[in-house]
């Protein structure tokens, strides 16, 4: 059970959060101009890294805000959290 530092509320138990998968996958601004393959790339393709990964999390049972996390998926170490729209801190 992680202890997650919500960028808005501070340290909270993992049970207050929900995970939202890989971060920084931007929804295309003009989807209609994309080919099937390009759209599929956005829709389906995820890296699923073993190691340091950028992820989206939501403080679902707290402030309801989404934020990003730098987490190592092999040892669960959380290296940083940062707000939506911010750049990931350099690894």
């Amino acid at each position: 059970m992680f202890l997650i530092n919500c960028p808005y509320c501070g340290e909270r138990d993992q049970s207050e959060f929900s995970a939202g998968g890989e971060a920084h996958i931007v929804r295309p601004k003009q989807p209609t101009e994309l080919s099937d393959d390009q759209w599929a790339e956005f829709l389906f393709m995820r890296k699923n890294i073993k190691g340091v990964q950028l992820e989206r999390w939501n403080h679902a049972h707290g402030c309801r805000k989404w934020f990003n996390m730098v987490r190592n998926t092999s040892d669960d170490k959380i290296h940083a959290v940062y707000k939506m729209g911010e750049k990931p801190p350099i690894k």
Binding site: D13, H61, G62
Partner: peptide, 19 residues
């Protein structure tokens, strides 16, 4: 409740949303 109330209990006016 998984929330840590150790500081919360002594600070009047504190607010938390939790489970």
């Amino acid at each position: 409740c998984p929330f840590n109330f150790n500081d919360f209990k002594n600070s009047k006016g504190a607010v938390t949303q939790t489970l």
